[in-house]
């Protein structure tokens, strides 16, 4: 993993990293990617790689239904007049 890739990924995720953090994440990300390299030895397939288990034509009927009350979902969320508080945006 090179420095430029780390900077690009950070920019996409709206993160500002210090020089130390860039180096730290470069090593961490490299380690993670190395760990996944084991998949290179897995047998390849010509099938669509959308899902390892084939799931086809599973559709839901268009029936409105709410299982959990909205108020319950908002209990542990930081809200203001029912709006979810989010970060600063440009």
């Amino acid at each position: 993993m090179d420095r430029e890739t780390v900077i690009r990924v950070a920019r996409s995720a709206h993160l500002e990293l210090t020089e130390e953090e860039i180096e730290l994440y470069r090593r961490d990300l490299e380690e993670i990617l190395d760990y996944f390299r084991v998949l290179d030895d897995a047998p390849s397939s010509d099938d669509l790689l959308v899902n390892p288990v084939e799931v086809t034509d599973v559709l839901r009927s268009d029936e409105p239904h709410m299982e959990i009350p909205a108020d319950t979902l908002l209990e542990d969320v930081n809200t203001y007049e029912r709006y979810v508080r989010g970060p600063r945006v440009q």
Binding site: E63, P64, I68, L73, V84
Partner: peptide
């Protein structure tokens, strides 16, 4: 023009109050 959302069953119309038609 569907009655429920695309990937969950929350209704597409109804209460205008914010965050009333939501699910996980």
């Amino acid at each position: 023009p569907t009655r429920s959302k695309m990937f969950c069953s929350c209704p597409t119309e109804g209460d205008a109050e914010p965050n009333t038609r939501i699910c996980p």
